[in-house]
Design a protein around this nucleic acid. Structure first.
Lengths: 188, 188
DNA sequence: CACGATGGCTAAAGAGATTAGCTTTTCAGC
DNA sequence: GCTGAAAAGCTAATCTCTTTAGCCATCGTG
């Protein structure tokens, strides 16, 4: 029988497709194996265990986010860049709810994840630098920004906002609050 | 042999103790059974399945939060009440990280959960009413407040804030941002 | 004191993760 | 082209966890 020609990357691809279609709960090694046309134990040739697969998925998602956010803020500065970052962050979450949910809030113990998280954080800090924030102040601000954006994304994706009021309006209020309250006043 | 004298409440108690000690991952029917001195299948006399157990846990946690927040804002009004709400919310998350994590961001399909979530939301809306916010504006504001507070709590609990800067300082910045940027200016 | 509801138990099946050990394919180097 | 080792598959088997079925003991009520 010919080989399936799998690789760690291919396994992650299949897992992501699976998640996109059926949600995080459906992520199981048998399901991934089925989708790649391979017996379950064969996956262990490419991935140490299901935990590592989850880590690889999270890493991929964080890289996608970093690319997206990085591109969105390119050529922008100040509050405009912050708004762009917030918009694209939410958009990713809404367009790929399960991928977003697959991203753990913390790097936890994995160095590769910490690396990917660090790069995303770098983008955020760069944006804040463009608003005149540096050092400790930038860290505190980045935390608040991240908390607000991530909090909104998580709640929206999970269907946590039950009432009928328009979500875009709510988010614009959050953007305004962040820009007005969190960033130093512009004096140019 | 004498009966164990279990009840749905007792099962949830044991499950909460288990979660507190060993984290969400450790929540398994065998573990709960072991802790209550009963064989695993016996639990099905009190709880439909592990999903229902999770729902009951979430419900309990949300009730605890509602009590706590309700008590904290009692006798306070305006921004002071908002700050009190934010403080006690974060404190609960930090003191009971796994319980907090056991709370799903959305009621999803369960009516009992929706009920508990509704009561918590009521407290938040009451606090905002004390700030002069009502109707649609209050809903948008509540969403932003919740996003910020929940986002911070989730990230902190998961260890998502890696850097060494003081977390209390970050949170005070979030409090200030919310009070200054999200609430209507005080004019008394 | 009998009886029905309730709570508990054992046995067993099914799903998923993981390990062990075997076979086949691939391919680099001769 | 050959060969031998590494890589990639596979089957079989184990373990844990969930869940169902069916049996028995206990408890409280009339």
């Amino acid at each position: 029988m010919p080989r399936a020609g799998l690789s760690p990357t291919g396994v992650v691809d299949a897992a992501l497709a699976l998640i996109d279609e059926q949600g995080l709960e459906a992520l199981t090694l048998s399901a991934v194996a089925g989708r790649t046309g391979v017996a379950t134990p064969s996956l262990y040739k490419h991935v140490r265990n299901i935990g590592e697969l989850r880590t690889l998925i999270a890493q991929r998602v964080m890289e996608e986010m970093t690319d997206l956010v990085g591109t969105a803020v390119m050529g922008r500065g100040g509050p405009e860049a912050v708004i762009a970052l917030m918009r694209v962050w939410r958009r990713y979450a809404v367009e790929h709810p399960f991928r977003y949910a697959a991203m753990p809030p913390a790097p936890l113990t994995d160095p590769a994840l910490a690396e990917a998280g660090g790069r995303l954080l770098e983008v955020v800090l760069a944006v804040l630098r463009g608003c005149g924030l540096d050092g400790g102040a930038a860290v505190h601000t980045a935390r608040c920004l991240r908390a607000a954006v991530h909090g909104f994304a998580v709640l929206e994706v999970a269907g946590g906002f039950g009432l009928s009021e328009d979500l875009d309006t709510s988010y614009r209020l959050l953007e305004k609050t962040i820009v007005d309250g969190l960033l130093p006043a512009e004096n140019d």
